[in-house]
Design a protein around this nucleic acid. Structure first.
Lengths: 234, 234
DNA sequence: CGTTCGATTGATGTCAGTCAACCCGAGTGG
DNA sequence: CCACTCGGGTTGACTGACATCAATCGAACG
């Protein structure tokens, strides 16, 4: 069996700088400079990476794993804002302003992160405008995703909202399969509910409905170790 | 009486480059270079500036006036995403990617805009990384606003959603007044409804409720020439 | 085998959307 | 000056969809 990921410190560092889209335009000498500045951390599933209201020390990039970004609302509900995985970054809001985090971040699975201190990163940003452009592109696509979310939340048809979120997961994590696109859901029913602002029971019901209509097919409904999977049919 | 705004072409150009936060870090020589590249246009109230799906030629900056950014949904509703006014910019999404506009933009009042062609702007961006940083900051605060919107849409308490949007307007357009913060609403009831995803009647009812509770006070309810105003009480 | 936790299902209540009527101020035109 | 229309705002009654509450199920795990 081939060992797919080398676990030594150096390779992980390399991976981080090389795999991440925002550094992709730099040559390897420049990437090495970044590598030398990176601080690594490992979080286990369920661990809190950032607590809403705390201070952020720098830009955080996910090297391996998956996290949810969320807020706990006054009403006691949890609103999930983003699901981030390998290559995604966060903490960018606080690179310039000195404000507290506006959200909490929790590891959905065991997760390796790389951190670049605010001051270091600012230096790079001025030296390599292309990094800034990459970040802008990413921020723009996040804006677009949030705009889509708001549109679909404003338009109220709950069933299509559930469909949309499954479709979003299919695009990001789906694998081609003869029966359709196979998705390992990153979230439980409750998680999905918190992502799109519904009650968990409603998500349950609507997913059954989508299955009855032949749009999706659920497999291993119950938690087989992680969440259930879904086929998005063609 | 002092003429507050000079209407000659040059001054308007100057204003545009000087007033806009994203160019604020440049010295006047650099600003003049930008000025020379700007294309100006005037739109009258109600006029469409951008149609969803059309091609964008560059970055657009609002010099004077106010616009709404929205999408027409399949269900026949209009979802307003942003209200932009003097100094705000849009079209940034298409500076790098060559995609069609994902929203329409309409002038809410007579509006002067300045446009910088995509290619010109990209050059500036690479020359002055600070511009990029300013844009990133602005994109981040838009993200934050959308995140707030999503949280409040997900959390469903309709009355506080109406309150939040009034508070947002108060922060952006409010003037101090002995009775509270005076806001000239940029949107009609229907507009507000389309902004936060409610029915116009519901907005009406909830605003009355907020008034009964002594949180706001409405003046000149009916359209006296533009929209009604509101005091946000202390 | 019992416990736990997520998912499901059913019954019920509530709140916002919808439909319809009406109000009111502003134009308009005779 | 008055009658008319027009458009936004308001109000009331009704309805339906989703939240809520409660019970049950079923897989995983000790």
């Amino acid at each position: 069996m081939i060992k797919q990921i080398c676990n030594c410190e150096n390779c992980q560092h390399q991976l981080c700088a090389r795999r991440v889209p925002i550094f992709s335009t730099m040559d390897s000498g420049e990437q090495n400079r970044i590598v030398s500045l990176i601080i690594r951390r490992l979080y286990t599933k369920g661990e809190l990476i950032i607590l809403e209201g705390s201070n952020l020390e720098g830009l955080i990039i996910i090297n391996r794993g998956q996290v949810k970004v969320f807020r706990d609302t006054l009403e006691g509900r949890e609103q999930i804002l983003y699901i981030f995985s390998e290559g995604d970054f966060f903490g960018e809001k606080n690179l310039f302003r000195n404000e507290q985090a506006t959200y909490s971040v929790e590891a959905l699975e065991d997760t390796n992160i790389c951190m670049i201190k605010k001051s270091d990163f600012q230096k790079f940003l001025r030296e390599y405008p292309d990094i800034g452009i990459k970040i802008m592109e990413e921020l723009c696509s996040r804006l677009e995703r949030l705009e889509n979310t708001i549109e679909s939340m404003g338009v109220k048809n709950v069933e299509s909202r559930v469909g949309s979120v499954l479709f979003e997961f299919a695009e990001r994590y789906g694998k081609e399969h003869q029966r359709g696109i196979m998705i390992e859901l990153p979230l439980s029913r409750e998680g999905i509910a918190n992502y799109i602002g519904l009650a968990r029971e409603t998500v349950s019901r609507k997913m059954n409905l989508l299955q009855d209509e032949g749009i999706i097919e659920m497999i291993g409904n119950k938690s087989v170790s992680g969440n259930c999977s879904v086929y998005f049919k063609r």
